[in-house]
């Protein structure tokens, strides 16, 4: 595939376009987790990565002729993401109670 052809595919929303958007979304989420220190922002980065996985899943499902199995897995991923949100935020609140901070660098040791 030549370069112009690839760009055309991406801009018109072919399968490659969705995959590239999902990849960039994943790497932006990963960058948020690595570069920001606030636990709440890192948590949002994890959510972003989960969303990128969902985009890839549903993009492949659509290009395989509307596979309904993907929707089932999408539902399970959403359920796990919701659990992760509840537990993660509870842990952040617990950390804030003990250390008075939401900065992950300041929570580097297990001992108080």
């Amino acid at each position: 595939m030549t370069g112009m052809d690839a760009i055309h595919q991406i801009l018109n929303g072919g399968l490659q376009g969705y995959l590239v958007v999902a990849l960039l979304l994943f790497f932006l989420g990963l960058a948020t987790v690595l570069l920001r220190r606030t636990l709440l922002l890192q948590f949002m980065g994890v959510e972003l990565m989960l969303n990128a996985a969902n985009v890839v899943l549903l993009a492949f499902a659509r290009f395989r002729g509307g596979d309904a199995q993907a929707m089932v897995f999408y539902l399970f991923i959403i359920a796990v993401a919701a659990c992760e949100a509840a537990i993660g935020l509870a842990l952040i609140i617990g950390l804030y109670r003990h250390r008075d901070t939401t900065d992950s660098d300041r929570a580097a040791s297990l001992k108080q």
Partner: peptide, 19 residues
């Protein structure tokens, strides 16, 4: 659901700015 929960926690802990 998830973002409302996150925004609630941000405001509850009043950690609007990065330390």
């Amino acid at each position: 659901a998830i973002m409302v929960l996150v925004l609630f926690v941000i405001m509850m802990l009043s950690s609007h700015q990065e330390e």
